[in-house]
Amino acid sequence: MLERLGSQFETASAGYAAAHGIERDPDWFILKMQEELGELTQAWNKLSGRGRTHGRSAKDLRTSLADETADLLGHVLLFARHHDLDLSAAIARKWRFRPSL
């Protein structure tokens, strides 16, 4: 399941990078993960009253939180795929269950 999802993120990311002239070198994968974590933190700060909302509704702020969480998930999977990490096995070791659909 994670491998298939990672493959879907890879297709989307590679297409975006090609269209915008972005070189996805080894550092890019971890730097993008860090960038997305920062954006998720910013979305959380706004939703939890620790940041300026610029008049956005709670619904919009929750949508932003979900969007940034999806971005972070995508970049975690891209990082794992690029480094040939077996996340399913790691989840089984660390969380003691096997991911499934």
Rank of each mutant, 00 (worst) to 15 (best):
R96A: 06
Y16W: 04
P99L: 02
R98A: 09
K32F: 01
S100N: 10
T53C: 10
A92S: 03
D84N: 14
G51M: 06
S64Q: 11
M1G: 06
T11G: 03
L73N: 05
A17Y: 00
S48V: 12
G55C: 13
L65W: 07
A43I: 11
H82Q: 14
H20K: 05
Q34W: 07
A14R: 13
E36G: 04
M33D: 03
S64M: 11
A14D: 11
F29G: 12
S88I: 07
A89N: 03
F79M: 09
G6A: 14
L87Q: 07
A14S: 15
T11M: 10
F97Q: 12
L47K: 14
G6P: 01
A89W: 02
L2G: 12
G49F: 05
H83P: 02
H82T: 00
A92R: 14
S64A: 14
A92I: 07
E10G: 00
A92L: 12
R93Y: 04
A70E: 09
T63E: 13
L73W: 02
A92P: 03
L5T: 11
I22W: 00
F97C: 12
E39G: 03
F29M: 14
A58F: 07
L72N: 01
V76E: 02
M33R: 14
R62P: 00
R96N: 12
D84C: 09
L31S: 11
V76H: 03
A92Y: 01
H82C: 06
D27P: 07
F79A: 13
Q8L: 12
W44Y: 15
Q8M: 11
G74I: 02
M1R: 09
L37C: 11
Q34R: 14
T11N: 09
G51N: 10
A12N: 06
S88D: 14
L85Y: 06
E68T: 07
W44M: 15
R50W: 15
Q42W: 02
L101A: 13
